[in-house]
Structure formats: C-alpha cells, structure tokens
Amino acid sequence: MSEFLQHIANTLILGGTYALLGIGLTLIFGIMRVVNFTHGELYTFGAYFVFLISSVLGLNFLLALPVAIIAGLVLGALIELLLLRPMRGADIDTTMLVMIGAMIVMQNSEQLVWGGVAKSVSTPFPETPLVIGPVSVSYLRVFVLVMALLLIAATYVLINRTKLGKAMRATFQDRDTAALMGVNVRAIYTATFAIGSSLAAAAGALLGPAYVISPHMGDIASLKAFAIVILGGLGNITGAAIGGFILALAEELGAGYVSSGYRDAMGFLIIIAVLLIKPTGLFARAERIG
C-alpha cells in the first residue's frame, strides 16, 4: 500500500509538468493549426535560461522562472513573426517542414552555445525530502508541481475570463467570422504562439533544475507533449491537462507493476487504444478550447 501511495504521489508530481508541456502545444495547434515542432526546443531554451541566470550569472534562482517565461514569450513571438506569418495560407505540410527546420536550427544552436555535456543547476531547496507518512518527495518537486498548477490555472483564466482569451476562442471557432467582428487575427496568432512558447519555456525552467539540462532534453519532452495532446484531443486545453496526469499515471503504474522496460511504451499503448476507440481524443466532446 505504501508503495502504491508513493506511485500516486510521483504521478501527481510528474503529471503537473506533463500537463504544462501539453497545454502549450495544444493551444497553438487548436488556434493556429500549426504543429509546433519547436516545442521541445522552447522547453530546452527555458531550462538553459535558468542555468544562465542562477549558475552563470549567480542571480536568485526564484528570479529565473519569471525571466524564462518572458524570454519564452519573446522568442515565441519572434518565431511567429519571422517564420509563421510569411507562411500563412501555405498548406500544413509546408509549415510543418519549416517548423522541423526551425527545431534543428534551435537544437544545434543550443549545442553550439552550451556544448553537448549536460549541466546541473543547484537550487535553494533543502536536499532532505518532505516525508508525509509513507510518501516522500523532494521540496523542489513540490515547488515544481505548485508552480505548474498555478501556470495551468493562469492559462485557464486567460482563455476563459479575459478579452484576449475571448478573441482567441473566437478565432479558434471561426477565423473569418472573428476577423469580420473586428478581431485582429494576426495579432491573436502572434499572442497564441508566444503564450504557448512561454508555457514550454516555463516547463523547462521548472524541470531543468530537477533533472539535468542538455541540448537533447527537448526530444523526449516533445514526444511526451505530442502524446498528451493526442490523448486529450487536439486543441483541448482541459483534455491536455488531464491527459498529462493520465500519461504520468500510466508510466508510473506501468513501471511499478508491469515492467520498467516498458515504461515509455505504456503511454503510447494508451494512445494507440485511444486512437482506435475514440480517434478525436478522450475529451473531444467538451468545448474544445477552454
């Protein structure tokens, strides 16, 4: 039983970050119909930003997260303005190729700047774990979970309770009608891509210190993000949030009770099952955005 409780605690901790990873990706796909292959690189970018601020410049660790979020916003807006805006109206395959190219360039730039050897960030959190009954977790991971939940809540409020969010939802439902109603669709696209990117950077900034930071960390992160998005339904934010926790649960219980060799396969087995039974994702019937 205590092992099971530990697995559930691990699921919550891991699921929070998976959800954060999935939301940024699903937001961009839902509104812009762009498959963002740079998602994992934006995640890596966020992680290196924390390394830069807290380890290279020696500034406060807690300062790193907001700065990484802002840097992610800026970089995302730049990618949208320079790469995606000129491609508007091009078919989805062309845009996809451009994004794959951008991913390769970003990954190699990271390698050029930081080298191939992984970096580790020290944090102000105590090394002794937080123990509650049979469950034990590190303070850093609790901080990561809390911040991830806050960011997910903030995204939810932004989309459902603000004017920008309303414009985003309108654009999602019908781009042309939204434009006729006076929504500046081009600005909405830039904002959407910037927000989605900053969520990826935030996930990297949170998880980088928990793991090690390397130029290839984005590969596995984007793979998981895609899995979560398919699981939750493309463009479905609530679906991505829940999908993140489901993937974490599948991996955790799969490794704990089936076989650790199939840990990463568990998530994909679920996805195959979902695609066979409910191809639009688990939560397709809910309102698709927000």
């Binding site: 205590s2 092992e3 530990q6 697995h7 691990n10 901790i13 891991l14 998880l207 793991y211 090690v212 290839h216 960390m217 590969d219 596995i220 991996e251 955790e252 219980l253 799969g254 490794a255 704990g256 009770y257 650790s260 060799g261 840990r263 990463d264």
Partner: peptide
Amino acid sequence: VETMDQSAQDMSAQLAKIKA
C-alpha cells in the same frame, strides 16, 4: 532487476518499486 531508458530523466517509478 529494473531498467531505465538511456535518455530517461525520471526514475521515480522504478525507485519507488525498489524502495518497497
């Protein structure tokens, strides 16, 4: 005998099982 993928960063699931 538990395994981990060479690029895996989170081994908590395997470790929770081993801890028990």
